[in-house]
Amino acid sequence: MIKVHISGHLKDYTGNKRDFDITECKNLFELIEKLNKMFPGIKDRILDDQDKTRLYVNIFVNGENTRDIENENTRLKDGDTVHILPSVAGG
C-alpha cells in the first residue's frame, strides 16, 4: 500500500479528497496513471505533454524530491509515502 497526499489545488479533480491508498505501482509514472484512472484529467495537471513532471510541481517519495531520484521512473514499494505539491513560486 502506498500512501498518496495531493495538494488542495487538485481537489476539484478528486471531489475534495486529498489522501489515497494506492496498491501495486512499480514506479511514480504508474502511480500517476492510476490516479488518472480514478480522477480523469489529473495527470495533465501533474505531468506535461511529454509525461515529465511540470516545472513548478514537486513530487516527494518519503520526503525526497523525485527530481533527485529518478523523476517519473522513481521506484515505489509498499509503505512508501508520496506527496504531490506545487512549488512555492513567487517572491
Binding site: G41, D44, R45, I46, R54, V57, P86, S87
Partner: peptide, 21 residues
C-alpha cells in the same frame, strides 16, 4: 504556471464549469 493550461466550458454563464478531461 504550476498546474499547466486547460480549457473549461460553462453552460450556465459561469455558475458551473467543466474542465476539459
Amino acid at each position: 504556471d504550476q498546474w499547466g493550461p486547460s480549457i473549461a466550458t460553462s453552460s450556465d454563464l459561469g455558475k458551473n464549469w467543466k474542465i476539459s478531461k
